[in-house]
Simulated assay, not measured.
Amino acid sequence: MKRHPVIWGIFLLLILLIGFFSLIYGVTSITGMRDGFTTADKIGIAPIDGVIKDSTDVVKNLQEFGKDDSVKGVVLRINSPGGGVAPSQEIYEAVMELRKKKRVLVSMSSVAASGGYLIACAGEKIIANPGTLTGSVSAIMYFTNAEELMKKVGVKASTIKSGKYKDIGSPIREMTGEEKALLQGLVDDIYIQFLDVVVRNRRISEEALKQIADGRIFTGKQAQQLGLVDYLGDMEYAVRMLAKMVGISGEPVVVYPQKKYESMLDYFFERAGSTMAHVFFRDQTIPYGIHYLVDSYGLRMLAPAGMEQ
């Protein structure tokens, strides 16, 4: 029987279309973007993971959720011991801006302390697991002094500076009392800024807050008793609560930030690079400067075996 070229052309086109949509379906399954194709009202999930070193990606994700009319509310999923002061404050401000358009709840994972807790204060309500480690309302600066080590190995250093404070915090010499007082003033000011955020958003008096805002951490259960969090529950509990608040009936559709790739090769190379980076650079180094950051050594001592940050 003679093959009709038009029929075979249509048949081939259908095969190509099926293959194309199967590929799209597979990729969206991998990247978690499949729910983005639905037209139902959605709940956005904005993850904040690890030490906070930069705010760019999180702020961008929050802004995109704010522009998406199908996203009726956003859950911040925080799993962070804190980090840099400026990026923590930038994310906090981005959440406050998002709240002008959407309702925002916070779901705490394993850790939401220091800068992670500062960001959580921007949420309308905070939900923590009973065993979440949170709190650590404090600020800290790290410095290393290698002067004695340099003497032992016979290394000498010289400094030429334009002002007496130019090499403040230098690792080659001990700080003077005057320098320590100057840096203490910086840390105290950053600490007061943190207190202001908690007092303003959690409706806790400054006097009561100062009694517990000394760097200590709490479980989610303890934090609820102190007024630092509102409810105990997991992320699913937070999603259901938010869905009810925004009027979504039935099982809510959740969506995560969509990462854009220029090509499929970009996606696979990025995933391969991310896996290798996780293998070779599992420990996150802490840069110098002032931080809203729970003490990493103390957190490891309190954490269950196998937990990393």
Rank of each mutant, 00 (worst) to 15 (best):
H4A: 05
H4V: 03
P5L: 03
V6R: 11
V6L: 15
F11L: 09
L14G: 12
I15Y: 09
L17H: 07
G19W: 07
F20N: 03
F21Q: 06
S29Q: 11
S29H: 12
T31A: 06
T39N: 08
T39D: 09
A40S: 10
D41W: 12
K42E: 02
P47C: 03
I48L: 15
G50I: 04
V51Y: 14
V51F: 12
I52P: 03
T56G: 07
V58C: 07
E64H: 05
F65K: 02
D68L: 00
V71F: 10
V71K: 01
G73E: 00
N79K: 13
G82N: 05
G83N: 01
G84Q: 04
P87D: 11
S88H: 04
S88Q: 02
I91Q: 01
V95E: 05
E97C: 01
R99F: 06
K102I: 05
L105F: 14
S107K: 01
S107G: 08
M108A: 13
S110K: 12
S110F: 10
A113H: 07
A113S: 15
A113W: 10
Y117N: 00
Y117C: 03
L118Y: 04
I119E: 12
A120S: 15
A120H: 06
G123S: 12
N129S: 13
L133A: 13
L133F: 14
T134Q: 06
S136H: 14
V137R: 03
S138I: 02
Y142R: 04
Y142I: 07
T144M: 06
T144A: 09
L149P: 00
M150I: 05
M150H: 08
K156E: 14
A157L: 11
D167N: 10
I168L: 08
P171M: 06
R173T: 02
M175F: 09
M175R: 02
M175L: 10
T176R: 04
E178W: 11
L182D: 08
L182F: 15
G185M: 00
L186C: 12
Y191G: 00
I192Q: 15
F194Y: 15
V199W: 10
V199P: 12
R200Q: 10
R202E: 11
R202D: 09
S205V: 03
S205H: 03
S205M: 06
E206K: 15
K210Y: 08
Q211G: 15
Q211L: 14
I212A: 07
T219Q: 06
G220K: 01
L226A: 06
L228V: 08
G233M: 05
G233S: 00
A243K: 05
K244W: 04
V246E: 00
G247T: 01
I248M: 03
P252K: 00
Q258D: 14
K260Y: 07
Y261F: 15
L265Y: 12
D266P: 04
F269W: 14
E270N: 14
E270V: 04
A272L: 09
S274M: 05
S274I: 01
M276R: 01
A277K: 14
H278P: 02
V279P: 05
F281W: 08
D283K: 14
I286A: 11
I286M: 13
G289N: 07
I290V: 13
L293H: 11
S296M: 15
Y297R: 15
G298E: 15
A305R: 11
E308Y: 13
Q309P: 07
